[in-house]
Simulated assay, not measured.
Amino acid sequence: MKLMVSGGGTGGHIYPALALIERLKQVDPTTEVLYVGTTRGLENKIVPAAGIKLETMPMQGFQRKISLYNFKTVYLFLKAVSHAKKLIRDFQPDVILGTGGYVSGAVLYAAAKMGIPTVIHEQNSVVGITNKFLSRYVDEIAIAFEAARTQFKHQRITLTGNPRAQQVAANRDSDYSWTEMGLSDDRPTMMIFGGSQGAPKINKSVVQAIPEFSKRDYQVVFATGQKRYQDVAKQLAGIKVGDNVKVVPYIDQMPHKLPKVAVLVSRAGATTIAEVTALGVPTIMIPSPYVTANHQFKNAQALVKKKAALMITEDQLDGRSLLVQADRLMNNEELRQQMAEASRKLGHPQASDELIAVLKKAIADHQH
């Protein structure tokens, strides 16, 4: 298969695409892939590091108010459509997958006008502006949350889940040992992770709770985010941190450690939800209020409704509220097991295979 993928700006658009590509190459080593992204997005580092060919083009989003900026946005979009048509003619893909971001709007619009099979993948429970626009032109739509279905006026919608889930599920039998971090494998471990950059409000709340966490029988691994580690270290100066609490800038080998986590405290991004539901990790979700259409709140709500997670909104978050919910789960193994089972029922451990089937369907329909 010759696959062109377009999605950019954030990891939430890029990592599912990379997980799908990895699986495609396992199934068919002759697969050829071209990734089309923006000149300034994270894809510039992540995609070449994964050994995938990358082409980029300048793009920007619309502002809600009327401004000259939006005239430039339209100009860049039309220029990107023209550029995309050239890339498509040169690469001759069998199918094109869009995973979100403004760049995928130009690429898939161009592909649809050229009669190339097209598929979009929506990772969130709230449909993004680009995918809403593209839904009028593409052949197939894949979704990760059932809640997204009614937001499209399209007939061909398939619930596949997020390809990242299958990638993580492959590590379910991880042999990772907490002794590598100076902790014990005989005590339940809670991991607190506010994203790669860290989240100031989460960090502040954990610092407030650490004196109490240090008295607990369970263990806590707290990742501050690289940029915020020094700030947290200063805040902890003079506070006794127990041997059961480890404060680190970031967590490497996440797919190997996650299966060993009793409870995760995290944001409610689409990739995180794909990972925890694939493994059945009980989670305390703290949705970011700084995202488009408050979609993280709605992502988390989908899990809370099924008793697969707890939620603390950021305006309710402090050391006390975090401690209460942490104790509720960490001191009740039966509740954790119930939550883990509910989480797994929402997971899609074969998400990449399901999305590959959608891509093949789009190709087959064009051949007929």
Rank of each mutant, 00 (worst) to 15 (best):
K240Q: 15
S196K: 09
L18R: 08
E354Y: 02
S104C: 10
H295Q: 15
K246M: 09
K2F: 13
P211F: 08
T38G: 14
L18N: 13
I239Q: 07
V27W: 00
G182R: 05
V206K: 08
A233R: 15
T271I: 15
M190G: 07
N331W: 04
R23P: 02
T189M: 11
V27R: 13
I192M: 13
Y109G: 05
H368I: 10
F145A: 03
L183I: 13
K234Y: 11
F71Y: 15
R320L: 12
R172N: 07
D353H: 07
L108Q: 05
G280R: 00
N70C: 14
I21A: 04
L34F: 12
V358I: 11
T179F: 07
I312W: 04
M254N: 01
I46F: 04
K360G: 07
A209G: 00
K360S: 11
W178D: 10
N299M: 05
A308R: 00
V276Q: 01
T292P: 10
V103N: 00
L54M: 12
A309D: 07
Q197M: 14
S174W: 11
V281I: 15
L68Q: 14
A169W: 09
Q167T: 08
G115A: 05
A362I: 12
G12D: 00
E180M: 13
I141W: 10
G225P: 08
V304N: 01
V207R: 09
M311Q: 14
I46D: 00
K215D: 06
V247Y: 06
G41H: 00
L76Y: 13
S135N: 04
G51R: 06
I120C: 10
G280T: 02
P29I: 07
V221G: 01
Q26G: 07
L355Q: 08
P163M: 02
Q350F: 12
M254W: 02
V304G: 02
V221H: 06
L359S: 09
R216F: 05
G61E: 10
E122P: 04
V261C: 14
F297P: 00
Y109N: 06
S6K: 12
P163H: 05
V27N: 12
A80C: 11
G41F: 08
V103S: 00
F193R: 05
V220H: 05
K246R: 15
I66W: 13
V103T: 06
I141Q: 06
G11H: 14
T130Q: 09
M4I: 08
P282I: 01
A357Q: 13
D186C: 08
T130P: 07
I116M: 05
D231L: 10
V36F: 03
D365E: 15
F145S: 02
Y229W: 12
G12F: 02
E32L: 11
Q26K: 13
S214G: 06
V291Y: 07
V33D: 03
M114K: 13
G98A: 07
A50R: 15
